[in-house]
Design a protein around this nucleic acid. Structure first.
Lengths: 338, 338
DNA sequence: ATTGGCACTCGGAAGAGTTGAGTGCCAAGG
DNA sequence: CCTTGGCACTCAACTCTTCCGAGTGCCAAT
């Protein structure tokens, strides 16, 4: 079937281009892949593929390069994800199992992902929204300053400085802590919020002014849902080689702007589904030269947060996708145990 | 005095080179700075400076460029640090005062520093070593997994997952927590360590197997002194323009290796003293093309940790030094309040 | 010690020529 | 109708050469 061969040609072009970083010509294609036809035939197919917008030529006498649309087709219809080898799985598992706390899980995951894909890895912290309050602690640092520590059921720890208008002694703090604990422990963010505002009415008037800033900080800490992002593998930017200004500079800038990174990961919502966003498909104009491979992760089936990688449009999608999926699974499993 | 003019010439060369990124010639120097002498005279001075190793020519018919030794002299003898304007001070103060917790203080400081200097900023977390244990909390996540949370007097929070060989119930945990608290609260790291090993002997045999992994995690959390580093302003790498391979790539790699960054900051020990390490003076061979401006910070006079910037050897030392010093002071003040 | 003059150097920009990978098209063959 | 070898054509990139001028070092004069 002619149509089939055209797809085979597209696949070959994508693979070669990803491998060599250079526009691929008909001759080279035939040499490297056993397509069973002559260069001339491939040229015809290429002309057709170009017509349909899957590939282009950088300039007239050059080989072809996949367009975003071409990559899209490649990812959607020409890619089969092979599972990782047992050895690889074990390596991942070992690496992640060594984590000592939640921060460490995130850190390690990001590093691992960066290393596996040789791309820049991005990972969002697990959100608190579905988890419940496990523990609340108030530690007096100075008479007018208290440290609030909030521990949630998934092992996340949030802390906040609280400034008091007047001095507060330790027994008062202990009292408040007990009251707050009773009110919010076991609650999700929403429930805790109402419980807190209810608490304000039950508390003796003298305590109320002390409670208020603490309650505010607590609310703030709980609603801290999705703004923390960890980035790793920045050094891999150095491999990007070509296209410094079109690719690297905007990426460096994006990496500082966590909001932008969140937007990139943002739409990866399903826990199982891999999202691949290619070039201009993304929400950020400046990053038109880059692609994002992301997925949700979290215990069970609902995604707590997202993780993924950002790289040049010209990347090895299949293996990248496999790596992202694998890391997401292992992280989910670890969180599951918690 | 001839010697004085030579220094003036060196200063002018450094300033011009930093500003233009291009080797500076005798003519241009005389034009831009009112030295009151002719180009020929400047040329003589340049020859002398070159003789002494303060400047070099990239090639015969080019202008001069400062050597590391030249920058050194410039920094040591030709630089006067002007205090920042009131407005700048206020801006810094406002920005840092908005921090909600220790993490946030560090985050903000790094960003601020990166922004002020337009360089890559690096900041080490305040160490626990001199601070005391304020609070210990054990939270059972699952029957065989406990989260240990350690709060220290300077507001730092460490957490650790602890895996138990057998199931542990909440009352046991509460009991252990009480015992541990009594033993370690108020202690510094060293004292806590001995207290813990003493505790192992006093505890009922049944608890001992449960205590052990917790004690180990606690020790680990406390000895976590200096390995956390935060980096910011990576995007500023993009300005480095020239010398991609000699400067930028090694830096990208170094930024991933926190150990390397710590080595860079490492020797900045005194709380007040600015350390400037120029080019090859640094401990890392690959970063010979970069300089480090760092200083210790911390409440009172002893430095808890270090912060600073890493940038190309060709940087504006005076203003960078002023910025680093200013941020260090403000951070110290904030930690002082805690 | 400083200065104007002068010959010299040499990196880098600008232009010209060459190369070769790759193309499109066509006519012949299955 | 698809495939294929042949062929003329295109054009980025490389090489080679030329040329320019910023900058130098040195010297004699002040």
């Amino acid at each position: 079937m002619v149509e089939d061969r055209r797809l085979a040609v597209l696949r070959a072009i994508v693979e070669d281009y990803v491998a060599t970083e250079e526009p691929v010509g008909s001759k080279a294609l035939v040499d490297r892949h056993s397509l069973g036809v002559s260069p001339a035939t491939v040229r015809n197919d290429m002309a057709a593929l170009e017509e349909e917008g899957y590939i282009t030529q950088p300039h007239t006498s050059a080989g072809r390069v996949p367009t975003d649309k071409g990559y899209r087709l490649f990812v959607d219809r020409l890619t089969t994800l092979k599972p990782m080898s047992a050895a690889e799985r074990r390596a991942i598992s070992n690496f992640l199992d060594g984590a000592v706390d939640l921060d460490d899980v995130v850190q390690r995951s990001v590093r691992l992902l960066a290393q596996l894909t040789r791309q820049v890895a991005v990972m969002q912290y697990p959100t608190l929204s579905h988890s419940t309050v496990r523990h609340v602690e108030l530690v007096g640092l100075t008479p007018t300053r208290t440290l609030l520590v909030l521990i949630s059921s998934n092992g996340r720890v949030e802390q906040r400085f609280v400034e008091h208008p007047a001095e507060v002694d330790d027994t008062t703090l202990a009292d408040l802590r007990a009251r707050i604990s009773v009110a919010v422990i076991g609650q999700q963010a929403a429930g805790a919020a109402t419980a807190l505002s209810g608490l304000a009415d039950q508390v003796p008037p003298g305590l109320r002014t002390t409670l208020e800033p603490i309650a505010a900080a607590l609310q703030d800490a709980m609603s801290e849902t999705e703004d923390r992002v960890v980035v790793g593998g920045t050094a891999n930017l150095a491999h990007f080689g070509s296209g410094f200004d079109t690719t690297m500079r905007p990426m460096l800038e994006a990496m500082e702007e966590h909001v932008v990174l969140l937007k990139l990961l943002g739409e990866a919502s399903g826990a199982g589904a891999l999202t691949v966003r290619i070039g201009h498909e993304g929400p950020v104009e400046e990053l038109a030269g880059t692609s994002v491979v992301a997925t949700g992760y979290g215990p069970g089936d609902d995604a707590l947060a997202a993780l993924g990688i950002v790289g040049p449009t010209r990347m090895d999608y299949p293996s990248t996708m496999v790596a992202v999926r694998a890391v997401a699974r292992y992280v989910s499993r670890i969180l599951d145990e918690a």
